[in-house]
Simulated assay, not measured.
Amino acid sequence: MSPQGPSQADSLAAVMRDSIDAIYSSPAKRCVQTVEPLARSSGLSIDRDGQRPPRWPRGGFLAR
C-alpha cells in the first residue's frame, strides 16, 4: 500500500459504510488492507476467497 493508502482507505470507509451489504476482497494483503477500515466501520466481515460474486459488474462494485 502506498503512503497515501491508509488515509484513502479511511475515506472509502466513510463514504461507503452505510451503502453496502457485503465486502469481497482478493486475499492479497494490499486488497485486504484497503477494505479493513470499511469492514470495521460497517460491521461487515470480509469475504476473502478471491472469487467475485457472479452478479458483479465489470467494474467491480455493486450499486444499490
Rank of each mutant, 00 (worst) to 15 (best):
S2H: 09
P3Q: 10
P3S: 15
Q4I: 03
P6E: 03
P6K: 01
Q8M: 06
A9K: 11
S11Y: 05
S11Q: 10
S11I: 06
A14V: 10
V15S: 07
V15L: 07
M16V: 14
R17N: 13
R17W: 04
D18Y: 14
D18P: 04
D18H: 13
D21L: 05
A22Y: 10
I23G: 02
I23V: 08
Y24W: 12
S26Q: 07
S26P: 07
S26C: 12
K29I: 06
K29L: 01
R30H: 07
C31V: 15
Q33P: 03
E36W: 14
L38Q: 09
A39N: 06
R40Q: 10
R40S: 08
S41F: 08
S41C: 00
S42N: 04
S42A: 13
L44V: 09
L44K: 15
L44H: 10
S45F: 00
S45G: 05
I46P: 06
D47Y: 03
D47F: 02
R48H: 01
R48W: 00
R48G: 14
G50H: 04
Q51F: 09
Q51A: 10
P53C: 05
P54T: 03
R55P: 03
W56F: 13
W56T: 04
W56H: 02
G59P: 09
G60S: 02
G60D: 00
F61W: 08
F61R: 00
